[in-house]
Structures are given as structure tokens and as C-alpha cells.
């Protein structure tokens, strides 16, 4: 249809969902996605023989894992498991304690200094950018192999996560109670404890439980770089090709992770 002229012209326009600029943008994004996948497939170093017999090798591994050597669980795996839980819990507690000051500094309504806000944000971002396994490598270099490195790795990784969420909760608090306490002449400690804390308490416990759940999972692998816990036992069993023991350890980790998740869900439902 040729372009109409006259007073009816505006009604003749066809409706389009996106403006031309948006359409070009969407097209470019899709193009970039396809290009990225094609580039990755063409250049990644995958050995074709490995790919061809992968299903057979996986099947073989699973057969060697069956049946799990359950007799091996007590005492060595059990002790390592308890150590893992201690690392996760202690790391979470330490991480919470270290995260609170940074969260207070990062929240713009609590700390009204832009330089301090930015500094705290920077600390929180760097804590989150470094994976807990890399933190573990660093702390193994600092403290030597053992659970101490694991506790600190878990704690330093948790600071960024807990601090960010806690700072967001702090910024969402209503200013009313704080103003009332200030008007009554309360000191800084009382204002925080009675004006801010009751408002962020549910969010704080929710975040703490959530992080503990994540830390239980993560502390299971810290042992691979020597930071204590069940990962050490797992690494040994794999290096000695004791696949029945590996299966036992994996089952134990799976059970603990599932139990932790159920526990956290139950407690959260009660708390909130």
C-alpha cells in the first residue's frame, strides 16, 4: 500500500511493537549471542576422542562407584564432616561480625559520608568478586593448610554477600523511629539498637541463614586446596581411585546439603 496523503494519513500507519532503534538493538544482541556461541564452539580446545567416549567413561565411573563403601563412613568421613560443619558455621559467624560495620558504612542513610560509602562498597564488591576457593588458596598461603584457612575463606567471601544485602535492608528502613529516638536525645548506640535493628532484624536473620546454607555447600570443596573439611578426604579418595569411598563421601555431602536446606527453610518460615 502506497503512503496515503491527506487528513487520514496518521491512521494508516502500521503499529510496530518496537521502534527502529530498539529493533536494531535487539538484532545486534541476538547477533552477538550467536557470534559468541559460534566463536566458542569453533575455538574451544575439545579433544574429539574424549567427547566420543564420554558417555561410556561416565558409565564406567558410576559402575566403579557402586556399591558405596558405607563402612568407611565412621570414623574418618564422619569426623571430616563435623569439621566441615564447624568451618561453615564459624565462618558464617565471623563473616557476619565483619560484615556489619561495612554494611553500616555502606548504607547511605546511616553513614552520611560519600567517601566512606564508596570505600565500603568497594570492600564489599571485592569480597564478592573473589571466589571462596580463591580466598581459600590465599589463606592457605597465609595460615598454612588446615581448617583455619577454611574459616577465614568462608568469612571473607560472606562479607560481600551479607554486607550488600544488609546495606540494602538498612537503606529501606523507615526514618520515623530514628528521628523519634534522636529527638528524645538517644545516643548513637541506642539509636542503632532500638531504631534501626528492629527494622532490619528479619532481613538480617534471613540473610544469615541463607548464607549459612551456601557456606555448608562451599565448605565441602575447600579441602581440595588444603583448607580442611570433607574436601580433604574426598581429594584423598579420588587420588587413590577408591571410588566406593568417593561414592560414600558424595552421598554424605548430598545428605548434609539437603538437611541444611530443609533446616534453613523451616527456621525461616518460623522466623519471618
Amino acid at each position: 500500500m502506497s503512503a496515503a496523503t491527506g487528513p487520514m494519513a496518521p491512521l494508516d500507519r502500521e503499529w510496530m511493537r518496537h521502534s527502529p532503534g530498539q529493533r536494531i538493538g535487539r538484532f545486534l544482541v541476538w547477533l552477538a549471542i550467536v557470534a559468541a556461541i559460534v566463536w566458542a564452539v569453533r575455538t574451544v580446545e575439545i579433544i574429539p576422542e574424549f567427547l566420543a567416549d564420554a558417555p561410556q567413561q561416565m558409565g564406567d565411573l558410576l559402575i566403579r562407584m557402586w556399591p558405596p563403601d558405607l563402612a568407611h563412613y565412621h570414623p574418618s568421613v564422619h569426623a571430616a564432616m563435623i569439621e566441615t560443619l564447624h568451618i561453615a558455621t564459624l565462618g558464617t559467624i565471623l563473616g557476619l561480625a565483619l560484615a556489619i560495620p561495612f554494611a553500616l558504612l555502606a548504607a547511605r542513610n546511616v553513614c552520611r559520608n560519600l567517601a566512606l560509602n564508596t570505600f565500603a562498597q568497594l570492600v564489599l564488591v571485592s569480597s564478592r568478586s573473589v571466589n571462596s576457593l580463591v580466598w581459600a588458596l590465599i589463606f592457605v598461603a597465609v595460615f598454612g593448610p588446615g581448617p583455619a584457612a577454611g574459616v577465614f575463606a568462608i568469612a571473607f567471601r560472606s562479607i560481600g554477600f551479607v554486607g550488600k544485602l544488609l546495606a540494602e535492608a538498612l537503606e529501606e528502613t523507615a526514618p520515623g523511629p530514628l528521628e523519634a529516638l534522636t529527638a528524645a536525645g538517644a545516643g548513637w548506640g541506642a539509636r542503632m539498637l532500638k531504631g534501626v535493628w528492629p527494622q532490619v532484624q528479619p532481613a538480617f536473620w534471613g540473610v544469615a541463614l541463607f548464607r549459612w546454607d551456601i557456606n555448608v555447600r562451599e565448605s565441602a570443596v575447600l579441602g581440595l586446596v588444603g583448607a580442611g573439611g570433607i574436601g580433604v578426604v574426598l581429594d584423598d579418595a579420588i587420588n587413590f581411585f577408591q571410588w566406593e569411598r568417593v561414592a560414600t563421601i558424595l552421598l554424605a555431602i548430598l545428605a548434609v546439603v539437603v538437611i541444611a536446606e530443609i533446616l534453613v527453610t523451616r527456621i525461616r518460615a518460623k522466623l519471618l
Partner: peptide, 17 residues
């Protein structure tokens, strides 16, 4: 979701190189 990706990676390294 339950198994940590590093553990899964170890198993795959052992199985497929």
C-alpha cells in the same frame, strides 16, 4: 543443584579427561 560445581568438575575430569 545440590552437588557443588567443583565436585562435579572433578568427577567429569576423572571420567572424560
Amino acid at each position: 543443584r545440590s552437588l557443588h560445581y567443583v565436585i562435579v568438575a572433578i568427577l567429569f575430569v576423572k571420567a572424560i579427561g
